[in-house]
Design a protein around this nucleic acid. Structure first.
Lengths: 347, 347
DNA sequence: TTCTTCGCTGCAAACCTTTGCAGCTCTCCG
DNA sequence: CGGAGAGCTGCAAAGGTTTGCAGCGAAGAA
């Protein structure tokens, strides 16, 4: 039913190769012929079959994007930015959701490998060695994680965590809890490392609680634990957990920031809408999405893996860029001075 | 570099067709041969090239999902459900975001048409005739809209809006505003129609404000207009707008629900997290995603469009199912009794 | 022994497009 | 007038897979 290149060729009285060239190399065909072909193509509603093209060029013009949880508001802006950038370059994005599951992650990247020109691994939970392994199968750019020898786009959450801790120290807090995120998260390790150092430097005590599921539920679940720990401030792995925690604390009769201060990470849109508005570390998610797409496409044009390109680019070790994006602390209403010592925090 | 069917055939000493059958019709090949082939395939890390398969079968095993705005929390649960259901059937989902733009919508469906077996059009903004047109190019299931002759999955927001208005009437409200959504939205028309009828029946006055951008910003922007209109309750096109409106009213010194009641639509996760918690119409988004995928795949197996299937299924008008999913009103804290008449609402 | 039947495997066409190469026609120059 | 070159077009192979058809050997029946 859909018109093929052959139909257009027949209709315009030329060979199929001429039709092909009309689209892929217009300067090689007589202007007169070109307009005729284009007219016929338009008429028949012809659009090149990308699958067939992919077969011979080795380029699908698709890229895969694997995220841990599309329902986590952290990801959509990144996805959106990546899609926009990709579309700009005539690429399409295949989004897949792993439900925070390592096994699903691996399965998905394999399933995607053959139908995309490259994969963006966003906040992967799998092991470094597994990532390296899949990168031999399909070009990969890693987001939110550092893997040696692979192109990576990271956000400097370590720096952000340090700023957050310093902010809390400045408010007088000396007993601080860190709400850990999911196991396997690079971001989680970075935050923990930086927060630990900053707390030690400032003479504060840092209690690590976790790992936890990086959602409101996960945050709410540890509210009681936080109360019993007797801390006066909390740095959460992400905004969702911070918000869940605030809810949970509220249910326990603890007020934020009067009784306890809470800082999140990500600066999702939601963090401006809750009451109190959340103090958080803003991460440049959109920029990360755009950058990652650029790096992948760059990689791709450097190292053709098409049918024709074999053998040409054997031994060149391309320089694998690693980009670190800056973060910043956004102070809103969920942090305040440490409560007077006499006050009962319910502990 | 990646192993092809030919490599496996060579390694296991059989013809490529036997390898092919080992995967697509195992019962046709000798068990002994089968294990040998499977071993070789495993060994070489062979995975069938889906593009090549698509070329001959006419099935890509991909489906497209076009949404208006992936950053709107309404969509992710739907996407997630659709993806899960699709993966279950060995399909992958191509998500694309139109940024609420009709032109982008049309362009995207065309670009996707050839590399997917069907498209899920979620809350499309384009005209019915355009939808019908693209449906001739690629199988389509429409979500959140009714188009005659096309399979549709709808949520009964009309019913939900009626319940919402009745809830407000029950609280004594007689002057109610409706915050309209984007132009071209079927949901918007449904809500408006049903709310209008319910208000008239209950002897209330319904003021329609809009159209508006369906985001917090869009909701916040009309806060002043709402105040000046002198209504005591508002039904918003979606939760995001409702939340934005509450923010905006708050900035104007109006309290929800003491001064004014607000109801949303969608029951996004966020609506449980804001203060006050939002009264809203819950829509079964996940069910809609699953149902739509099922309908598309069903459609697809009924009407093969593969290379081999031509001519066989010419004239059969398949029954195009239209499914209406129920909604329900979730009463939380953003609605309350109408304020005493003497009270100054700032108008 | 001869004929069927059955189970398995190989053959080759087909899907749609891209692209290196060769051939054609024309123009222009010497 | 002959030859070179440029501009355009056609030819055919290639890419990886599926599938209808045919062929082959062995087992069973007559």
């Amino acid at each position: 039913m859909p018109a093929t290149i052959r139909d257009v060729a027949r209709a315009s009285g030329v060979h199929i190769s001429t039709v092909s060239r009309t689209f892929s190399a217009p300067h090689l065909v007589n202007p007169e012929t070109r307009v005729r072909v284009l007219a016929c193509a338009e008429d028949l509603g012809y659009r090149p079959n990308r699958a067939a093209r992919a077969l011979i060029t080795g380029r699908t013009h698709n890229i895969g994007l694997i995220v841990a949880d599309i329902a986590n508001p952290f990801f959509p802006p990144l996805i959106k930015a990546a899609e926009g950038q990709a579309r700009h370059r005539d690429y399409h994005v295949f989004v897949a959701d792993t439900n925070e599951d390592q096994a699903a992650e691996e399965e998905l990247v394999h399933a995607l490998a053959k139908q995309v020109d490259g994969v963006l691994l966003c906040s992967p939970r799998m092991s470094n060695s597994l990532i390296e392994q899949v990168s031999r199968e399909v070009p990969v750019v890693v987001i939110n994680r550092q893997v040696a020898g692979l192109p990576c786009v990271m956000m400097d959450v370590g720096q952000g965590a340090r700023l957050a801790i310093e902010h809390l120290l400045g408010l007088g807090h000396r007993r601080i809890a860190l709400l850990g995120g999911p196991r396997g998260s690079w971001t989680n390790r970075e935050i923990r490392r930086a927060a630990g150092t900053a707390a030690r430097t400032g003479g504060a005590e840092l209690t690590v609680l976790g790992p936890n599921h990086p959602t409101e539920t996960g945050g709410g679940a540890v509210a009681d634990q936080v109360r019993r720990s007797g801390v006066t401030a909390v740095l959460a792995y992400n905004d969702l957990m911070a918000i869940g925690l605030i809810e949970g604390l509220d249910a326990l009769g603890l007020r934020v920031p009067a009784d306890i201060s809470v800082v999140g990470v990500d600066d999702i849109a939601l963090s401006r809408l809750t009451r109190p508005k959340l103090t958080t570390v803003a991460t440049p998610t959109a920029a990360a999405g755009r950058t990652a797409v650029d790096m992948l496409l760059q990689l791709d044009s450097d190292a053709p893996r098409g049918a024709r390109g074999r053998g040409a680019t054997a031994g060149d070790r391309r320089t694998t860029a690693q980009v670190m994006l800056q973060t910043e602390l956004v102070v809103r209403d969920s942090t305040g001075p440490v409560p007077p010592p006499g006050r009962d925090t319910g502990a």
